[in-house]
């Protein structure tokens, strides 16, 4: 948790020397006129330092502005939900997130808690165009970050929507825990831009999803995206166990579908929390006082997940509840990878 002894987020900004004059860099820096700027050779000199504490760094997150080199578009990992898409890819034009969910796999995956923004978005587009020449692409653009939450710095949401509109065989998913409505209101809608909202019960969002929008704000933002013509996906994923989970998720379902017309949803995903064993091991070292990372998960094939019976109960319960509002063929459950 942030305390008064720590600097505020982005009080320190590391900028790669070679992009010092890049207009996007300058625009980002304008948001932080009082920050300390430290010019660096390569973002990995800061991001990949040894023995960093992701948790300590979240007390005063630094920003690193860089140019991404090497591959920029990746094939989806096995724990990602592909929603039945054959050519499923993801990309990260940012690394890390301004929100601070205790269970976030990024804490286990990255060596640093600092946030990186890559400014060479055009090179991402160029690589993607290469793929689009071969086959249609379904791309998650907000996977290892929350692009919406940081859009006032980057303007990437508009850029991604415009790029997608120009490419008939591209569908993108923008996943968020932000409550921003303005982006969905101010950008022209596109039926190939799926606005995906991770929705958790109040008890989970307030306890574990630090700085993310409240549950009510996320529901409002989802409705806003829907009303403005974007296909909307609701992700009850990850479902997080708490003692009163049935009641919490039932209430969540009621709250969501009181505001949102299920028939108009693009689809819904349901999945309980799961994470690679290596990531969780690191997170347990970093967050010894977090109940959620210290739950006695079962290790199944290198992935930690809730014990089978509990996982079944939670996901099954949620699928059943959601099915009261939306056609079952639009409900994707992670475990089976089928509708």
């Amino acid at each position: 948790m942030k305390s008064k002894e720590h600097y505020s987020s982005f009080s320190h900004i590391y900028v790669e020397e070679k992009i010092r004059e890049n207009p996007r860099v300058k625009r980002i820096l304008e948001h932080f006129p009082n920050s300390n700027r430290i010019y660096i050779n390569h973002y990995k000199d800061v991001f990949n330092r040894s023995k960093q504490s992701v948790v300590a760094q979240h007390n005063s997150q630094a920003l690193i502005i860089a140019e991404k080199t090497g591959a920029k578009i990746y094939e989806g990992a096995p724990v990602c939900q592909s929603f039945g898409n054959e050519h499923f890819y993801y990309t990260s034009c940012m690394m890390n997130c301004i929100f601070d969910c205790e269970y976030c796999y990024l804490k286990g995956m990255y060596p640093s808690g600092n946030m990186v923004i890559f400014v060479n978005l055009e090179e991402y587009f160029a690589e993607l165009e290469g793929l689009l020449k071969k086959h249609p692409v379904y791309l998650c653009v907000s996977y290892d970050a929350d692009l919406v939450a940081c859009d006032s710095l980057t303007d990437y949401i508009r850029e991604w929507i415009e790029f997608t509109r120009k490419h008939h065989n591209l569908t993108i998913e923008i996943r968020t825990k932000s409550g921003r409505c303005d982006l969905w209101e101010n950008n022209d809608s596109c039926d190939k831009v799926i606005a995906a909202f991770t929705i958790s019960p109040d008890v989970v969002s307030s306890r574990y999803e630090h700085f993310a929008a409240t549950t009510a704000e996320r529901i409002k933002a989802a409705k806003c995206a829907m009303d403005n013509g974007f296909p909307v996906r609701l992700c009850f994923d990850p479902m997080i166990y708490c003692r009163d989970w049935k009641h919490a998720y039932e209430k969540l379902c009621n709250d969501v579908f009181e505001k949102i017309d299920g028939a108009k949803l693009w689809d819904v995903s349901v999945g309980s929390f799961r994470i690679s064993q290596d990531y969780l091991k690191k997170m347990r070292r970093e967050e010894p006082d977090s109940a959620i990372v210290n739950f006695p998960y079962d290790n199944v094939g290198g992935y930690y997940q809730y014990p089978k019976g509990l996982q079944e109960d939670m996901e099954g319960f949620m699928v059943e509840k959601v099915a009261q509002y939306i056609s079952p063929d639009k409900i994707f459950r992670w475990e089976t990878q089928s509708k």
């Binding site: 430290i38 660096i40 760094q57 630094a62």
Partner: peptide, 27 residues
């Protein structure tokens, strides 16, 4: 110091700047 350079190798090191301080920063 927010940036430390080893002159002979050119390698750079960056201590985290997390704890608020009134001290001016430098390289």
């Amino acid at each position: 110091c927010n940036k430390i350079t080893e002159y002979v190798t050119g390698r750079t090191f960056y201590p985290d700047m997390l704890i608020k301080s009134s001290i001016r920063e430098g390289e």
